[in-house]
């Protein structure tokens, strides 16, 4: 165990009596509380909430777009700036709300209190699945629960096979990992099995998909998985 002691401004004058307050509280309690409320609301309504995380360019937008024929979808788009992705969904007629984090110090992730009202609003469209497209980042989103039922990590072939070792928290917290752009593996002379193995080294029980928007069967496989999760949710709702 290492101790980092960072001393800021010391007290001045004579030594004083000190009182200790035991706190024992999760630092992100305030985020967790809101996330729990969102989770309960979505569970009660039987709407599957999926947090899609991954590096910039890993294919998050294309992934979500490819699933729109399979479900009645709504999308919450997270980006530091712009509405580039949100416009794509709007043109497709998919209900979408854009959150730009430049008003939150250009944060590299989304937090539950920033998205709760938007996620509540998206339910008015009566969707079957709501996708949160998180800010493109393989580090920061891992600590912030948004109330999702599924945390899908997208990991694209061009990123190379070593990412699970370099960014273990996000792979460790994933409920499923989709290795995207698998159609590029032969061109890049990369072996997708190595990607899979490295994911399993960090998260031995996670569900892994090989995915390409150009291969319809891979899209269908993810759609089946999400549909199974919807059925589980319906069972939970009826309890």
């Amino acid at each position: 165990m290492r101790n980092f002691v960072f001393e800021h401004l010391h007290g001045h004058g004579a030594p004083q009596e000190k009182r200790r307050i035991e706190v024992g509280k999760n630092i992100l309690d305030a985020n967790e509380k809101v996330a729990r409320e969102v989770h309960e609301l979505y569970t009660k309504r039987g709407v599957l909430l999926v947090n899609v995380v991954g590096s910039p360019g890993s294919g998050k937008t294309s992934f979500i777009k490819s699933l729109t024929p399979h479900f009645k979808v709504a999308v919450l788009e997270g980006d530091i700036a712009s509405s580039v992705d949100a416009k794509q969904f709007a043109r497709m007629g998919v209900p979408v709300i854009q959150v730009n984090t430049d008003i939150y110090g250009s944060a590299c992730h989304l937090e539950a209190p920033w998205v709760r009202d938007k996620l509540e609003l998206l339910l008015e469209y009566e969707p079957e699945v709501v996708f949160i497209e998180n800010v493109g980042n393989l580090v920061c989103p891992s600590d912030f629960n948004l109330g999702e039922h599924e945390r899908l990590v997208l990991y694209s072939v061009p990123e190379g096979p070593d990412k699970p070792m370099k960014y273990p928290p996000i792979f460790h917290t994933a409920t499923a990992v989709a290795i995207t752009k698998v159609d590029l593996a032969p061109v890049m002379e990369l072996d997708v099995r190595e990607f899979e193995q490295n994911v399993l080294h960090i998260n031995p029980n996670v569900r892994i998909f090989n995915f390409s928007i150009k291969v319809p069967s891979t899209v269908e496989e993810v759609a089946h998985y999400l549909n199974d999760k919807r059925q589980e949710l319906a069972k939970e709702k009826s309890k």
Binding site: K18, R19, R20, E22, V23, D143, H172, H201, N203, P204
Partner: peptide
């Protein structure tokens, strides 16, 4: 690089701790 058991090599493992973030205690000068 490998979260599997180093003793028996099993991948059947359960995470116990290591992603926590907590405020343990505060000290107040009376």
């Amino acid at each position: 690089e490998l979260f599997w058991c180093p003793h028996c090599g099993s991948s059947n493992v359960t995470f116990v701790r290591g992603n926590e973030m907590a405020i343990d205690y505060l000290e107040i000068e009376e």
